[in-house]
Write a protein that binds this DNA or RNA. Structure first.
Length: 577
DNA sequence: TGAAGCACGC
């Protein structure tokens, strides 16, 4: 009978069924008496945790203690897992104390569960102490420690543990790759992924989700496609995690239509999948489609959360859909009882300000129920720059500088506004202030993938092996686009230099270096894909439009916030960004 | 028995 029930519990795949089994066991008096009592409690605790209901596990553990039976090492490892998931620090600490009293804390499984529990709920030093003192260790102990460091963003320590492991397994590799991917160190994540394969490990779904995130971050389309192909050729089931990661990768690598295809083929979509698709379309300026998907999501019964609303509002911003933005913003509370957060106000201010409704944007900022943060003022100020409104920009700057006194962005934006409206003395003053406060500009950086290898260019970069050819190519490009009407736009050059030098500085923007390199290194007619860390500057935007025409190339540029597709001399952003 | 994965804002 015991084994019958245990099989039932083990195979149980839904909560309702599990509760029914528990009721039968209780009614039959099997839970609180007899030799199988501890065993049944353990199985139920484990099953509830596995079915994502760890809160139902806690009372079972208390019942076990009250009944007078002594929990065994299984009980402790299962309840600690539940406590890690909730997370329930107090119960976990009590379990730790009891395990210590019973001498079970040195058991390998219990100790590993304790390492995990402490790393999730407490101080990482506690987890480390348990790891260092453990009587015996296996790969799980090491893996738990790696992920503990990854969780707090301490990649150096995670890597040390990884390097010290006597034998690594797929999970060790997945954990360290996830760490680099989450920390934005995408290049190292991809490098480790190749090393993992060289050492003969087969990646699993969870590994590939992290790899795809790294590809998305870097704009490494070829490598991302390789992962997709790998999944297909292995007949792997694309679950909601992998599907979402693929959609995100395709969208962030400039191929949002391939993302749509993955999305349509997904048998099951959760809120994250919908949100990723909405945001992906929005980034490409396809606001109408994004909002259609948003409505479809609502119709399918998935309830949007505040992040989904950010996606929908961003889509309105990139497509200039002011009225729809207002409707969606209002529906947050009216339809779902969600109070807009400061981020949603930020989106609305962005939407209004970019569309020239600066006064309306200012009214919204002034009437917000919470203090506007730097992103709200930043959005407002970007709108002021776009529409060259110096007075309102200065108003924004006063607030922005208080909130972010050391951010270079504010100063750069302000100096650009002054320069572009002819107030050169003021622009100079801002530059002087930056120098005095030792605020450094974030250097512009552009990535370009050529045949699966990602090359990086910084502004004024001369470190690339082919830099001579690249600069020569730029001279040729500039000659050809000047014939089409290109005039270097010196207004946005911040450096305190003469006019000729300004042109020189412009021509060394990382985006131009990357395009010149791509033109040398890729086949005629191949699409060029760039990823930038900042927003595209006006001069690069003008130049790129003409390059797409003269060289008959499609150029896809992902900047800090959205995509630009340059083709035949124009851009999908309609000069609006 | 245990350990690893996805969306937003800058």
């Amino acid at each position: 009978m015991t084994s019958n029930f245990s099989t039932l519990i083990l195979r149980c795949s839904d909560l309702k069924h599990l509760r029914e089994i528990q009721a039968v066991l209780t009614a039959g008096g099997l839970l609180l008496s007899g030799s199988s009592s501890v065993f049944f409690h353990n199985s139920l605790i484990r099953a509830y945790t596995r079915l994502s209901s760890p809160c139902s596990s806690l009372p079972l553990f208390s019942d076990l203690l009250r009944s007078g039976f002594l929990p065994d090492s299984h009980s402790f490892s299962f309840i600690l897992k539940a406590c890690s998931l909730i997370p329930a620090r107090f119960t976990g600490l009590s379990a730790h104390a009891l395990a210590f009293k019973l001498g079970l804390d040195s058991d390998l499984f219990v100790n590993n569960a304790l390492i995990h529990f402490h790393s999730v709920t407490g101080v990482i030093a506690d987890a480390r102490r348990l790891f260092d003192r453990s009587y015996q260790r296996d790969s799980v102990s090491f893996n738990s420690m790696i992920s503990a460091y990854v969780r707090v963003g301490d990649l150096g320590s995670a890597r040390n543990v990884f390097d010290e492991m006597p034998t690594r397994d797929v999970i060790s590799w997945s954990a360290i790759i996830a760490g680099y991917a989450q920390g934005g160190v995408s290049k190292e994540a991809l490098r480790l992924f190749s090393r993992m394969q060289e050492e003969g490990f087969m990646p699993e779904g969870k590994t590939l989700v992290s790899v795809l995130a790294a590809c998305a971050h870097m704009g490494a389309l070829e490598q991302g496609k390789w992962v997709h192909g790998y999944l297909r050729s292995n007949g792997a089931k694309i679950d909601v995690f992998l599907g979402t990661a693929l959609i995100d990768m395709y969208a962030k690598c400039g191929e949002v239509d391939l993302g749509l295809k993955v999305f349509d083929e997904m048998p099951e979509k959760n809120l994250l999948a919908w949100t990723t698709m909405i945001k992906g379309l929005g980034m490409h300026g396809r606001g109408e489609e994004a909002l259609q998907i948003f409505s479809e999501m609502e119709r399918s019964g998935v309830v949007p959360d505040d992040i989904a609303f950010i996606g929908a509002l961003c889509a309105c911003t990139h497509a200039g859909l002011v009225d729809r933005g207002h409707q969606i913003f209002d529906s947050m509370y009216q339809c779902y009882g969600l109070r807009p957060k400061v981020e949603h106000y930020g989106c609305m201010v962005d939407l209004l300000a970019r569309n020239g409704l600066l006064n309306e944007a200012k009214e919204l900022v002034d009437s917000m129920p919470m203090e506007p943060d730097a992103s709200v003022w930043g959005a407002f100020m970007a709108g002021c720059r776009f529409h060259r409104n110096v007075e309102l920009a200065e108003y924004a700057v006063k607030h922005l500088i208080q909130l972010e006194p050391n951010s270079s962005g504010v100063y750069v934006l302000l100096a650009n506004i002054y320069a572009s409206t002819g107030r050169h003395a003021d622009a100079k003053m801002v530059r002087y202030l930056m120098k005095k406060k030792r605020i450094e500009k974030i250097p512009g950086c552009t990535l370009v993938e050529i045949r699966g290898i990602v090359h990086q260019f910084l502004v004024g970069d001369t470190s690339h092996a082919q830099i001579k050819d690249i600069l020569m190519k730029w001279d040729e490009i500039e000659d050809r686009i000047r014939l089409e009407g290109y005039v270097p736009n010196k207004k946005e050059v911040l450096l305190d230099i003469n006019e000729d030098e300004k042109e020189d500085a412009l021509s060394r923007h990382s985006e131009k270096l990357a395009i010149a390199f791509a033109l040398i290194s890729s086949e005629d007619g191949a699409t060029i894909r760039l990823v930038k860390n900042l927003r595209v500057c006006t001069d690069c935007h003008d130049a790129t439009k003409l390059i797409s025409k003269v060289y008959e190339r499609e150029i896809v540029v992902r900047d800090r916030t959205r995509f630009h597709l340059f083709k035949d001399g124009s851009c999908t952003c309609k000069d609006f960004w």
